[in-house]
Computed example of a mutant assay.
Amino acid sequence: MKKLGFGLMRLPQCADGSIDLEQVKHMVDDFMAAGFTYFDTAYVYGDGASEKAAKTCLVDRYPRESYQIATKLNGWMGCHDEESAKKEFEVSLERLGCGYIDYYLLHAVKEDNLHFYNDWHLWDFIKEKKAQGLIKHIGFSYHDQPELLDQLLNEHPEVDFVQLQLNYADWENPAVSSRRNYEVHCHGTY
């Protein structure tokens, strides 16, 4: 099985700064033709332009069962309260127009923003959306140290996956802890 994700964070732009949708369509077509199906975006990427581009270049052009789409709820950037954080899910679903999200993540979880995800009950919120069939797999993207990752995996056994910030150039960098986070994720006690 081929595993590679198409990141929709930094997309080619036209001279006016808008996303070059024709170029992105070609990129999506090449990716799909190579047998890959996982597309990754987020509510905050390009102030929503990334999710809209995913709809135009992927969702509107391919059968729903032919791809997997991941997007993220960012509970700390631009949110003012629990209600505004939870609203991101509905907005993402509308922007994408894909009916359900294959992989839904709490975005960039780390120690200094974890309280938003906890205090605003976002872990329970994504579980509810999964139970409603609007999300197939729940998880979180992670940008911190391995001790917290291990703690989160033990506290939240309901998560189906974790998307790690993994850069082989930072494999041993103590500020990023790529190797140590990978080892927790793959071999942890959770």
Rank of each mutant, 00 (worst) to 15 (best):
V184E: 01
K3Q: 14
K130G: 04
E83I: 13
G75Q: 03
K52F: 03
S178Q: 02
G75N: 07
I101W: 02
Y67W: 09
S18P: 07
K3F: 14
K86H: 04
Y43E: 05
M27K: 09
G75D: 08
L164P: 03
D170G: 10
K87N: 09
S66E: 12
R180G: 04
P174I: 14
L122T: 02
A54K: 00
K136P: 04
F39A: 05
D60I: 07
D170E: 14
S92W: 07
F6G: 03
A108C: 13
G5Q: 07
V159A: 09
G99D: 03
K3P: 01
F89K: 00
G75S: 03
E183F: 08
G99K: 05
L166R: 01
A108P: 00
T189W: 04
H143F: 08
C14Q: 12
T189E: 14
I126D: 02
E65M: 01
H137Y: 15
A34N: 10
V159W: 02
K72G: 02
K86S: 06
D81Q: 05
M1Q: 13
D112A: 04
F125I: 05
L148C: 07
L164A: 10
K130W: 08
K2G: 08
T41D: 12
G188H: 05
R10T: 14
N154R: 05
D29H: 11
R95F: 10
L122P: 00
D47M: 14
K110I: 04
D102A: 02
I101K: 00
F125L: 09
H137T: 07
H121D: 11
K2T: 06
C79W: 00
F116D: 10
I138A: 00
L21H: 08
K86P: 03
M9K: 11
